[in-house]
């Protein structure tokens, strides 16, 4: 029964992708931009958690909170300084600025903390439980549970609170929501804050899974999570969840049954196939354009 343990490991990896993909999809849904610096916010979060645990010997929950606080502030500051002046600019200009921010964060981290990778302390106990013949580590379980909690909280927040409905309104029609008295700039800032906070949670899970922290650690998970967001239908929150989980499962199965080195090629190949048959992603909405 190797299959079951692969499936659970895939769900674990997919949960991390899903949490990161939420950040991409929310920002895309509301600000209509691809935030390429999102992966590097994960990296900053991982460094903050690393120093909180090793230098200040904080317990894990406090370290996660510290990482979340720093990332949230960082996300909002980046949005205010770099993206807000470009609200009216063509989307390519915003994309290039996001790339600039990404370079800035990576090279800043390299200057501050050196480019060599640091070993992330194993704060989550290494043991596991056995399900039938498959054994599951606590880390994987915690990752999956965290992802489910994040999803439930976010869905409740989006659907039940006033800010949540304002966010949904903004993603549908910014002009109309401004006329309804919604502070659109505020909503965009809140979106960036939530996305970056989630990135911090993902960063701790990611750094514990591959126990190392380095300045470019965020770029590959960032690209994969972006793929996951597109997979599920960019702009859709349940889509990011489904897309992230599926991407994780496909990646682990491809590694286990086909080839470790070719797993990336398979993941992106599946993405192209899905886009060919369902261009808006699995759960994306079809938009009809009227002449």
């Amino acid at each position: 029964m190797q299959f079951l343990s692969y499936l659970i490991n895939g769900l674990g990896l997919g949960s991390v992708y899903a949490i990161i993909a939420l950040g991409y999809t929310m920002v895309y849904g509301i600000a209509k931009m691809l935030n390429f610096a999102h992966g590097d916010i994960i990296m900053v979060g991982a460094y903050i958690a690393f120093f909180a645990i090793t230098k200040f010997s904080l317990p894990l929950p406090l370290a996660v909170l510290a990482a979340m606080a720093v990332c949230t502030v960082l996300g909002v500051v980046i949005e205010r300084l770099a993206y807000k002046p470009l609200r009216q600019a063509p989307s390519l200009a915003v994309l290039i600025t996001a790339i600039g921010v990404s370079y800035f964060l990576q090279n800043g981290a390299q200057l501050l903390w050196s480019s060599s990778s640091k070993v992330f302390p194993s704060v989550i106990s290494t043991g596991g439980i056995s399900l039938g013949s498959a054994s599951v580590s606590y880390l994987t379980l915690i990752t999956i549970v965290t992802c489910i909690i994040v999803m439930v909280c976010l869905t409740l927040f989006i659907n039940k609170t006033k800010t949540g409905s304002a966010m949904r309104a903004c993603s549908e029609d910014k002009g109309a929501s401004m006329l309804m008295g919604i502070n659109v700039n505020m909503i965009i800032s809140i979106t960036f804050a939530i996305g970056s906070g989630l990135a911090a949670i993902a960063s701790v899970l990611l750094a514990s899974t591959y126990p190392s922290v380095y300045p470019t650690m965020g770029s590959m998970p960032g690209i994969k999570a972006f793929t996951a967001a597109v997979f599920g239908g960019i702009g859709s929150i349940p889509g990011a969840f489904v897309g992230g989980l599926l991407l994780g499962i496909i990646e682990i199965f491809a590694k286990a049954y086909i080839s470790t080195q070719l797993s990336d090629a398979i993941v992106f190949g599946v993405l192209i196939l899905i886009l060919m048959f369902k261009p808006t992603g699995l759960l994306g909405k079809k938009i009809n354009v009227k002449v």
Binding site: L86, N107, G108
Partner: peptide, 11 residues
Amino acid sequence: LIYAVVLIVIM
């Protein structure tokens, strides 16, 4: 780092 800043400022 300066390269990144130049990029952002130009945009």
